[in-house]
Structures are given as C-alpha cells and as structure tokens.
Amino acid sequence: TLLLGAEPEKVCAMPDPALPDSDIKSLTTLCDLADRELVLNISWAKHIPGFSSLCLSDQMSLLQSAWMEILILRVAFRSLLCEDKLVFAEDYIMDAEQAKSAGLLELHKAILQLVRRYRSMRLEREEFVTLKAIALANSDSMHIEDVEAVQGLQDSLHEALLDYECVHHREDPRRTGKLIMTLPLLRQTSAKAVRHFCSIKQDGRVPMHKLFLELLEANV
C-alpha cells in the first residue's frame, strides 16, 4: 500500500513545437523527460519504507546504480497495453519507425522484449511498484557501506512481494520467482541505454540537464 501511494505522478514530454522534427529533437525531448522523471524518482525512493533509514551515501549509491533501470521499468509498465510501441509519456509514444529515425531502434527492441515478458505475465500494478523498489535495493553497487542494512531493505521488499503473490496468485507458486527472473533483462537493457546515452553525450549535439548528466557520469 505504501509503495502504491508513493508512485510519482504522470509526466508529460511536451516536445518543443518550435523545433523541426529530427533525431536531435527526439533525443532532446527524451533527455528532458528523463531528467524530470529522475527528480520524481528520487523523491519516490525516499517513500520506500526503509530507504530513508539507510545512510545518505548508500542511498546515493543505490540510485546511481539503478536510476536507468527505474526509468526503463516505468516505460515498460506504461507500454503494456500498447502493442509494439513505447509509451515514454502519454504525449510521447514511439513506434519502431520513430525509434529508428532517432537512432534508438536497438534500445526500442530491447525495451519491447521486456514489455512482452511482462505482458505475457499480465504484470499488475502492485507487482510493478514492488519490483521497481526491488530493482533499486538490489542494484549491486560496489560502494555500499552498510551491506547488512541494504540486505535488510531487499529482504523486506522481497517479503512484500511474496506476501502479495501468496494472497493474489495462489494458483502460481512460482510467480514471485518469474518476476525476479525478469530483472537480469532489465539490468541488461539499462546498461545498453546508459552506453547509448553516454555516446550521445560525447557527440555533444543533444542538450542534457544536469541531474541526467550527473547520473550518466556516475555509471561510466
């Protein structure tokens, strides 16, 4: 219930109508959207029961490792009802053709693979919010100071997922495991996205906001 209540509000992409359509415009819109979502995701993290009790340095390490996974999981969940398209925002839905023009076809395909996996499982909102918190707590940062405290957070979120499945999916005792087993694909897709946006950053043609840049640099 706390995780459902902590979900950030929807964000609109609002592509700049003054800019002509181009790959630069698409990427600028996405980077701007990601930057605004990141601000919301940081305050979301603070509402995860137990997260704020971690030391500040561990809170930072978890977010620096998992920020892209969180962004991608949110896009994947929003895209569940939309066949072959990614719903970056309600006003920014991208099909393969548009992704190709933005140079994002590989990433589009990878995220759609994740969407198909969740769609075939009929991922529910309760599972989505818990899985997202687990992705954060389980981000495998190399810089954790209090490993036991982070393990405690992982355990309590894992427990919440087990409890939910025990009540709502008695028919499939392996559902929790199936959900957890989607996390490697999420990690892989996130690493692909970080690499791609790092190379866009190096090109220097797309303006990026400071928080997005800061987190992109944390992953290099």
């Binding site: 940081i42 305050s43 500040l56 930072m60 977010l63 620096q64 928080l211 800061e214 944390a218």
Partner: peptide
C-alpha cells in the same frame, strides 16, 4: 561525492 551534488541535494530535501 563532490561530483554528485544534485543527487545529494535532492536526497537531503525533506519532501
């Protein structure tokens, strides 16, 4: 940590 000023600031904000 110096390099991650914005993340640090946002985490310290009370909201």
């Amino acid at each position: 940590k110096e390099k991650h000023k914005i993340l640090h600031r946002l985490l310290q904000n009370s909201s």
